[in-house]
Design a protein around this nucleic acid. Structure first.
Lengths: 336, 336
DNA sequence: CTGAAAGCGCTTACAG
DNA sequence: CTGAAAGCGCTTACAG
């Protein structure tokens, strides 16, 4: 069943059928109705390859997810996909390793697949700076800011990671904590987590707390086992810590288990604070105090901006989405 | 940059270039080397739409994930995608709602996108029985058995859900539990969970335990909030339960929180047992006793079977992958 | 082993 | 408003 069959069956030419299918205005109502009747009768679906070939028009929106274990991205992905589908866009999802080069991958994808737009869930700014120029389709980066990069086709929406991390430290200090450790993410490049780490360590220094990245920080990937291992290393090295700030909730839950296996109670013996605000933080025992990123707003703003830049030629948008310190049960007040 | 440019630049015709690109044997070494040199020099990538248009050859493998919150599928997806990529297959992922009609969706996808193969992560057998006939590409169903359906292009790999559920009940009974509740999944249709529920309730009956689906079972979706709500309903109705068997780990963690909010300690006041064996079960407090599905084997067997049926015309395969009862810390021995 | 040519199923100026 | 025709970038018999 091709457009030719529909033409024959409806008594019109293929041109007219094509125009009806593409909601072209210059078609008579009679033709539109007749053609659609036949299309519906046979359940005809135009061949996507052929359509994109000729029109050189671009196919679906592709979402690149950096890291498979990061529940924050799972949450964002669900929202993004559902918003996109609601707008009638086809969605293509690809998972990349947390340490993969998402920009090079995306560039190759563009050559092969000609997506009409790209949404990055997570991204290393250093890679964007050096390689994004080869990508020409409208793109949106979520959870990191590309404002400084100045690409005409790249918007971004992010939490103010540095402020949020500082806010966490303020909170811990206000609860009497002075020996605070840091776990998770990576300082290399400009990964999402690097601003958090820098923000937190700067805040500690501004409070005159003795903190060195070398002894008070352990990098790790965003997964339970990695959080577990990092917390063990840190707690062995610095057994007198009263609080650990983890750069992701998943990491924090790994750390929670590690602390318990070392005989520590949460929060009586060790306070723990996460980042992201995934659903699990509200179901754990204790419930995890964390920085809640507004995934609803991130997804909504990201998708609507992408759709806009897909249709009109608007300038890129860069926004900071407010976060919220979600005070729950995993931090003990030492002073009160 | 098209194949024509490569032809011009290499001094050969487009036919020869195409043959080189497709590893066709009837090409001279000289032509192959010359063409590939030009291809590499310009980083040429053939247009995927055009390629698939003419050859009517099929594009990528599509993975349909039923349910976004189900961590078991996240685990399977990661493995499946990585195995497929290792074999040089393009992978396309689509998420569907837990209650969506995956077969109708897949059929439409086949018409539009012409995937070369399909992998279903979860599926309702009733939908497969009534509608899968319209799908003609090689397919694999994971975590449910399609053996009884007899489709020539549908393989399946699953845990023996009914035996596993019976095993859970045996285990609880052997620990002295007699008042056991059931949470999660859906009895309607032939969802993945329906065998578990039937297997468990049959095992209880065979032990002469008073159990009625009506009062001892609460259906729910695979998510933390749904598990929470279902456990609350069940515990309010049946406050004297000593154990609850949850049809998924995510549900069990929701139930754990609900029990605690009702003032119950796990496992001292209430034993909890899950299903799936997701990573979180090994990091929670208490660690969750659960049925561990062998995701590594499910993914490996599923992918290798799909690849085989993609290339040769082999008969479908249906296998039961052994499960393991992972005894951890969430079940109390009442008789010990 | 290679080239010229037809054709995959659609879209889109171009006439009318 | 509509049709006939060219063409998107590739693959694949068909000759040679």
């Amino acid at each position: 069943m091709t457009i030719k069959d529909i033409a024959r069956l409806s008594g019109y030419g293929v041109g007219t059928v094509s125009r009806v299918l593409n909601h072209h205005p210059d078609v008579s109502d009679a033709a539109r109705e007749r053609v659609m009747a036949v299309v519906r009768q046979y359940g005809f679906e135009p061949n996507s390859n052929a359509r994109h070939l000729k029109s050189q028009t671009l196919s679906s929106v592709t979402v690149l997810v950096k890291g498979t274990q990061n529940m924050l991205f799972a949450d964002l992905l669900e929202r993004v996909q559902s918003l996109l589908l609601d707008s009638g866009e086809e969605v293509f999802v690809t998972y990349l390793d947390e340490d993969a080069d998402e920009v090079t991958y995306a560039a190759q994808l563009c050559r092969l697949r000609r997506p009409k737009g790209l949404i990055f869930l997570g991204g290393d700014l250093e890679l964007f700076r050096s390689k994004f120029a080869q990508i020409t389709v409208p793109s949106v980066l979520l959870t990191n800011s590309a404002a400084q990069l100045g690409f005409g086709n790249l918007s971004s929406f992010t939490t103010d990671d540095s402020a949020a991390a500082a806010c966490v430290v303020e909170y811990l200090v206000s609860r009497g904590h002075t020996r605070i450790g840091l776990i998770g993410g990576n300082l290399s490049g400009e990964q999402i987590s690097s601003r958090r780490i820098r923000g937190a360590s700067a805040a500690m220094e501004s409070h005159g707390l003795a903190f060195s990245l070398k002894s008070g920080y352990e990098p790790c990937r965003f997964s339970l086992p990695d959080g577990y291992a990092a917390a063990q290393r840190l707690l062995r090295r610095q057994p007198d810590l009263t609080a650990i700030f983890c750069m992701g909730d998943v990491i924090a839950f790994g750390a929670m288990r590690a602390a318990r296996d070392l005989g520590l109670r949460i929060p009586e013996d060790l306070s723990l604070i996460g980042y992201d605000g995934i659903v699990w933080t509200r179901y754990s025992a204790p419930r995890l105090t964390t920085v809640r990123q507004d995934t609803e707003a991130l997804a909504a703003r990201g998708v609507s901006t992408l759709l806009k830049t897909l249709h009109y030629d608007t300038a890129p948008v860069h926004e900071v989405i407010p976060f919220q310190l979600l005070e729950q049960e995993s931090v003990l007040a030492l002073n009160g």
